[in-house]
């Protein structure tokens, strides 16, 4: 079975081609929209996607060495994400599926991050820690779906780091040589300053920390590097704490960290220490597949199609707020995740 997958939920227009026997990944083409200032402008991003979409598909097919007629299905990310961006991928996928008469497979972007990670580490039933620009959530499989055990009550970790860096005047670019500007600036920080640390149950909250850190910066009462260091330590520690709480609660023996923010080496080492202490296996999706890409959409599409999931093109509408816990996962047994 060979599937082509299209990703366009935020800043990356990605086309991937995968098949069900190794090597699974046949092509991985990405066009990344980079804003000159500020964050992602959805309209600008979607225009960038539209002008590069045909090239991306052509390149993916030629790299994979397949023709459209060889494909068993077209998978597309329909959400969650930015509407104007998602619509570019959806329109292209609908057109290809109806013109070539191929099954159209609706893929949840969050589930795709999880499934590509599980494939890479051969994990069976991990606790999911999903950290990206748009998402901060902790999930575990139970009764047919991934259930959300914890999430942010306001902004995501990625959004927190990016906004802080931008307001402190050290971004864009947000990531330089694989290191986020906040991690970079924190390297020279030595003094820990007390700022709001908010963990409520399994949930985190970063908006108060952001406001307090910026207020401190504007007051000029602390070194920039100390502000970066303290804000980062608090944000990362809160994430590790809720992950650890979820592990204690669910009894999962594996932790899978997915999403682009997971590539921070500082966060990675904190996860390593925690996993060693708790005796669980850790998988952090490597940067190449942690960021948005078409391969993860194609791979999840393949799993879905094998379980008979596909829709008519007119049913393939985008869902900007399609959460992970709204998707049935037929390839996992109906088990109760609780260890008891």
């Amino acid at each position: 079975m060979i599937i082509l997958g299209i990703e366009s939920s935020a800043h990356t227009f990605g086309v991937g081609v995968v098949r069900d026997e190794p090597p699974h990944i046949l092509a991985d083409v990405r066009f990344v929209y980079k804003p000159k200032t500020g964050g992602i402008h959805p309209k600008e991003a979607s225009q960038y996607f539209m002008s590069n979409a045909p090239e991306a598909v052509k390149e993916a097919l030629s790299k994979a060495g397949v023709k459209v007629r060889d494909l068993d299905g077209i998978a597309v990310a329909l959400g969650p994400g930015m509407g104007p961006c998602l619509r570019v991928g959806a329109t292209l996928a609908r057109a290809m599926a109806s013109y070539y008469g191929k099954p159209l497979i609706p893929v949840n972007h969050a589930l795709a991050h999880v499934e590509i990670g599980k494939m890479l580490f051969s994990f069976k039933n991990p606790l999911i820690v999903y950290l990206s620009g748009g998402n901060t959530l902790i999930a575990s499989f139970s009764e047919g779906r991934y259930r959300i055990f914890g999430e942010t009550l306001d902004i995501s970790l990625g959004n927190f780091l990016d906004t802080l860096a931008r307001e402190l005047g050290i971004a864009p670019p947000y990531v330089v040589s694989g290191l986020h500007q906040i991690d970079r600036c924190a390297q020279n920080g030595k003094n820990f300053i007390e700022l709001p640390y908010v963990v409520k149950g399994q949930d985190v909250s970063f908006s108060g920390l952001l406001t307090a850190a910026l207020k401190l910066y504007k007051s000029s009462r602390a070194e920039l590097s100390d502000i970066c260091y303290s804000a980062r330590e608090i944000a990362y520690s809160a994430i590790i704490e809720v992950s650890e709480r979820a592990l204690a609660h669910t009894g999962n023996k594996e932790v899978l960290v997915v999403g682009g923010v997971a590539s921070s080496p500082v966060l990675r080492s904190k996860f390593e220490v925690m996993s060693r202490l708790r005796g669980v296996e850790l998988g952090i999706v490597p940067p190449q597949y942690a960021v948005d890409n078409g391969v993860m959409i194609a791979w999840t599409g393949l799993l879905l199609l094998k379980h008979g999931v596909h829709v008519r093109p007119e049913e393939a509408y985008v869902r900007q707020r399609w959460k992970l816990d709204q998707v049935d996962v037929p390839w996992l047994a109906r088990t109760n995740s609780s260890g008891s």
Binding site: P80, G83, L153, R319
Partner: peptide
């Protein structure tokens, strides 16, 4: 109201005009 503030809540109305 708190639930609606969460990320990607389906019940929350999508802003018009996007």
């Amino acid at each position: 109201e708190i639930r609606m503030r969460g990320r990607y809540v389906e019940e929350r109305r999508v802003r018009r005009g996007i």
